[in-house]
Design a protein around this nucleic acid. Sequence first.
DNA 1: TTTGTTTCTGGTAACGATTCCATTTTGGTT
DNA 2: AACCAAAATGGAATCGTTACCAGAAACAAA
Lengths: 357, 357
Amino acid sequence: MKGGKRHATLSDVARSADVGTTTVSRVINGGAKVSPKTLARVRSAITELGFIPNHAARTLRGEQTKIIGLIVPSIADSFFSSCADAIQEVARRHGTLVILTVTNNDPASENATISTLVRRTDGLLLVPTSSHSLELRNQLRDISIPVICFDRPMYDIQIPTVITQNFEGARAATRHLLEHGFRRILCLGGESELFTMNERVRGYTAAMKEANARPLIDMRSTACDYEGTSNAIVKHLKGAKPPQAIFCLKNSTTISTYSILQKMKISIPSQVALVGFDDFELASTLRPSITVVQQPVEELGHTAARLLFQRLALAKGMPINDKEKIKPIQLKTRLILRASCGCREVEEPQSISASGH
Amino acid sequence: MKGGKRHATLSDVARSADVGTTTVSRVINGGAKVSPKTLARVRSAITELGFIPNHAARTLRGEQTKIIGLIVPSIADSFFSSCADAIQEVARRHGTLVILTVTNNDPASENATISTLVRRTDGLLLVPTSSHSLELRNQLRDISIPVICFDRPMYDIQIPTVITQNFEGARAATRHLLEHGFRRILCLGGESELFTMNERVRGYTAAMKEANARPLIDMRSTACDYEGTSNAIVKHLKGAKPPQAIFCLKNSTTISTYSILQKMKISIPSQVALVGFDDFELASTLRPSITVVQQPVEELGHTAARLLFQRLALAKGMPINDKEKIKPIQLKTRLILRASCGCREVEEPQSISASGH
DNA sequence: TTTGTTTCTGGTAACGATTCCATTTTGGTT
DNA sequence: AACCAAAATGGAATCGTTACCAGAAACAAA
């Protein structure tokens, strides 16, 4: 009998328990006083009829939707899917659902998504496609629900934001390579229009300048795929003064670079050392293992979500005080030392007989 | 002026255009006849007031919510996040939003999630935690909205389902190893309570029996993590007749196994060959590259979503005819031959000078 | 002009929960 | 028994939309 009987309504319960709808509402939402006798009667009527409040009706009355919107560039990307996981968990603890949308870094799609979501959610968690976009800024300014930005900030607008220390992470990674004695370090990959990439480049450059080494940056926003990376590497390695180390600005570049160097039979780290930004599952499994800057992905998601729910709780009472300067929360990154930077010996695998116990 | 002015309502528009609410509604939803004159007047009033229909009110009136629910075991898992990506894309094309929920393979969480979602979405895309659960089956039977299962089916209940050819894929992989001359093939990893894993074991076993080889299966549902896998491999390799090849039932087992064999300095494939179920980004990058059974992930998501929207379109008109036997759609898997099975020479990387052009 | 069709249009009752406000009940005090 | 404050309860309006149904307007034919 699929889709047959309609759900019980609040007035069904009221009739069944012989009370007014007001009383039932009070029982459901707690708070107001209800005599123990009626309470019990209503409770049993509710369970008997299997009553579940209709959310649309509640929302219509001006209540919260108990839904938040999550807007990310991509969900297939493990960075964002891990964030989504953390966010979803926090939301569930708050009895709230998460609508997932992806923009593919397309501003038009982002704009449309935000418009749709504003009317249908209590708040938004957003990874902005562009930190500068005037259009996006205006859209966010006029928005009637709380918005939190994460991973990338928005300029010239006061929005609570959580990001990671891209600058510091990249600087630490570069410093580390410099400490190994490398002077010619190539900074490779990454879309030049993205905030995170620029911050990492800034960190790289800062470290190089500190050491009086000449920065060598090759960002190719159009072709930072495998092919583009391959061409870039070949070009640089064929030069008169080939790089002794490569600092990859993003995950996929790290993977491509690794794969390309292996194919070219260039030994890592003895011929070319390698450090990547952003950790990934196999970075420790590959031989040589890859040194990376690790971002606190779960914490990023948790913090952003917590911030949103904090605002949501506040919003119930008074309007938010937006006058106070909002400083982005910056989460610490961590340099994970493995073999590709030259820190560890290339791992000597243990033999089979030695491994038993 | 955050959250200041309230949104314009349909009756605001009606007043402004000096028509009845019914007419405005007709303009918005199209269909019925409206004279060109009034049409223009209403249209301009709509744009002028920036009117956007209130979704809660529509839903309350019994319209669709334009939201579907997606229930997966985990979103950090690249398999499911790729599915989610595909689903989200189809949904967007249908002007529908996707609520993402994760169960962590926990039946209680699944149960609660479904209950919540039923009242708030038009339909559900579900990866069931258990194919057998009587409780889940009953819950699904009483549900008032269309449900599609994917990746794992439900037994003894007619629900449209999309799965991949786990059996055939595993059999093909095993046959391939047998063709290489390996007789002692270990089938490793995977949770024994999951449908997909059992199907793969069935495929493996079928191939082994065909070839009169003795199946050797080691599923350890409690400990199929790195540690458990490591212990298992050591145990098997120390035996009198160590396996010549390993068929890994799932992604994470493949990765662990690969890493462990490398650590043990056991050469792949010359000492132990390796084939995994489910492809992953780095499988082709690792040296040796890993032969895997590839599942059509995007197609799985697309197909499931399309099936749901098909039902949704149908549901508008007549009740669904559930009498017809519903056969699960099975999507083809593909065996990707790489080096770890012994097919290719271990790749001779090209030298740097040879690579330019 | 009258009549009979179409074609448009608007009033109003739902949908299901919340909440103000008024009313009833309770219980404690003189 | 009489009174009053406090506690408990219910009626009915409200949120914004859709759809039934009836009524008005337009137009054609007689």
